[in-house]
Every structure is written in C-alpha cells, then in structure tokens.
Amino acid sequence: MKISIPKDIFTNPLQKSSSRNDDETFLLFISRILSLGVALIVVAALLDLMHFNDWKQDALNALSFIGRGLGEALIIAYLVAVVVEPYMRSWYASQTATELWWAVQRKNVPDEMRHAITSLAKSKEFYRRTTWKMRFDRTDDGQLEVELEVNSTGTSIDEPVHPDVGLWLMSSSSKYKARHIAWRLEIPDDDASWVIDEDDFLRIDSGELEVSSLYPDDVKVPAGKTYTTKKLVRVYPAGDWLPLRTRCMTGRFFYDISGPAADGLEFSVKHPDGTTATDSFKNTGKKNISFESPAGSFTLPGHVSLVSWTPTAAGGAELGDAK
C-alpha cells in the first residue's frame, strides 16, 4: 500500500511564513540567471558570425565556446531550480513518509521510537531562528557566572499554539543554584505580550505560584502568526562546558559570547548537526565573538549545542574554579 499525501504538506514550515521580499529576491535571482544564460548564448552566436584571417579568429572561437558553455550551464541551473529540485524534494519526502509509516507499524519497533515520532508529528510550533547570548562573569569569590539570554522567533503553523515557558536548567556548581531571571512572549501583529519576572520565578520555585496563573493555558498564538520569546537565566558551570538544549524544531542557531570572564579564552561551539566552530578572544581586543549554525541546518527537539572553552593560563586556574 502506498500512502497518498498532499504535496503542500512538504512545504518547509520555517519558510512558509517567510516574507514576500524573500520570495521576490529568489525569483529575481533565478530570473537573472536565466537572462544571463540566454545573453551568453546570443553573444556566442554573434561571435560565430564574425570572421578574421589571423589570430583574432582563434580568440573569437574560444570566447564563443566558453560563452555558449556558460550560457547552457546557467539555463540548466535555472531549470533544475524551478522544475527538477521541487519535484525531487516532494518525491523523496513522499517515499520517506511511506517507509516511515510502515516502519512505525512493526511490532519490534521500540515504544520510545514510536512515541517520539508521534510526538514530533503533532508538533505545531517551529522556531525560524534562536540566538543564544552568553555573558561570562565571575562572582566575588571567583565562581564563573554565565548570564544566558535566549531569543527565539517562532511561527504557529496551521493551528494556534501555546509556547512553553521551558523551566529546564542545566546543573550548576554545588555552591550556587541556577535560576530563571525573566521570560517574555510577544505576538507583534496582535500587540500582545506576557511577562514572568525574577520575583515570579522565585515564587514558582517555592510552590507559592503556578506558571498558569501568570501565563494561562488558554493563551494561544493564532495560526500563521509570528511570535518571539525571550528567556533570561543565570547559571554557574562547574566545568568548562555549557549545554544549550533545543526545546522545539529550529531552523538556525546564532551564538554570541561576551563578558569580562571570557577575555583571553578560546571558545568552541559544537552544533547539533555535528559541525564545530572555534574562535578566541586571545590578543584580539574583541568585545564579543559570534557563531552560527550551518545554512540549511535543521534541529529537532531535545538536541543540544555544546559550548566549551579552554582553561585560562592565568594563575594556573581553570575557568569555573574559584580564584
């Protein structure tokens, strides 16, 4: 049996809400490719009509050959972008969906896998981008302190969603406790926002207050609307690494590192797709360094980006240890 699936469901939900300017830019780009290809072939044909009796003829022949080849290549690239690539993407997704459906039906499939796929299929919330801003500082007794600001831009696909506050925090040094500082949800088109501040989080941690009393479950981002979330936390890493956990499907990640405790250190970011990028403050005078995930990457819920750093040489102490 082959499952019949509507083609429009294979549209990337992270691109579905892209602005019209993005679509116009793409159409303009491929139109210019086509125009350039046609122009090169026309110029090559005109060069073929010209005749000389000396070395100029050889040069014209070479130019005509190169121009015609480039023109044909550009036209082929245009046809692939407009016709072949969308068809192949839809065909591949259809084949994969059918095989995945049958795989999940088998009795020997682990329940965890079946539940994970079902949960993923039900997801109606997507982040187009998430920016992690990390400011490295130290407490009075030398303990590393990282203020982590997470800014995400999301889209509600097909039906209203209730973005989760996300109360997960990484473990911190035994002497200090990681804590939430602030959380904010905004729906720009509706001029609506909800805020949970540090005092609210302290009352939530103590059990005195429920998140739902400040951010009711019936708060929904309307279907097709874009929204932003901002989360501010403070953590105290016991070692030389910081895990950044993904809460929902995300298109691109951006990382910004700054702060006095980061000066003179080399940082490495391992993206969920396995690629790694490094940069350093050492002898550069930079106030911040930035990383970003590879273009075209896509991260699933629960995946982790790992930020790590090399020990500082000053005094032989490692970053995260008390002075």
Rank of each mutant, 00 (worst) to 15 (best):
M134N: 15
I181Y: 04
S18L: 12
V165R: 03
Y176F: 07
A59W: 11
L14Q: 09
A93P: 07
L70A: 13
S94G: 10
E198H: 08
Q15N: 15
V307S: 05
W168P: 08
Q15R: 12
A97K: 09
W183D: 04
A178K: 04
A322H: 07
E318A: 12
S94Y: 02
V219K: 11
K56M: 11
P311H: 08
A97S: 14
V165L: 04
L46T: 03
S173K: 10
G142E: 02
Y176K: 14
D191C: 07
G302T: 02
P13H: 05
L214N: 06
Y78Q: 04
V165K: 05
D263T: 13
W309A: 05
D48T: 09
G239E: 15
A261T: 04
R128T: 14
T98M: 00
T226I: 13
G224F: 04
A44N: 03
G166H: 11
A322S: 15
L40I: 01
L144A: 09
S31C: 05
Y78L: 05
K225C: 00
L14M: 07
F136H: 15
P243I: 02
A295K: 13
V219E: 04
D256Q: 14
Y87V: 14
R138V: 12
A277P: 03
S193H: 12
T310Q: 14
I41G: 02
R179W: 00
G285R: 06
L60W: 00
G207K: 04
T226Y: 01
P237N: 04
D190T: 10
P243R: 03
K7S: 10
G296S: 06
D190K: 15
T250W: 01
M134W: 03
P216G: 08
V84K: 01
F254L: 07
I196L: 06
E159C: 08
L100S: 09
L100G: 00
L306V: 07
S297K: 03
R203Q: 15
S94R: 07
T96W: 10
D256F: 05
D141F: 02
D158Y: 07
T284L: 06
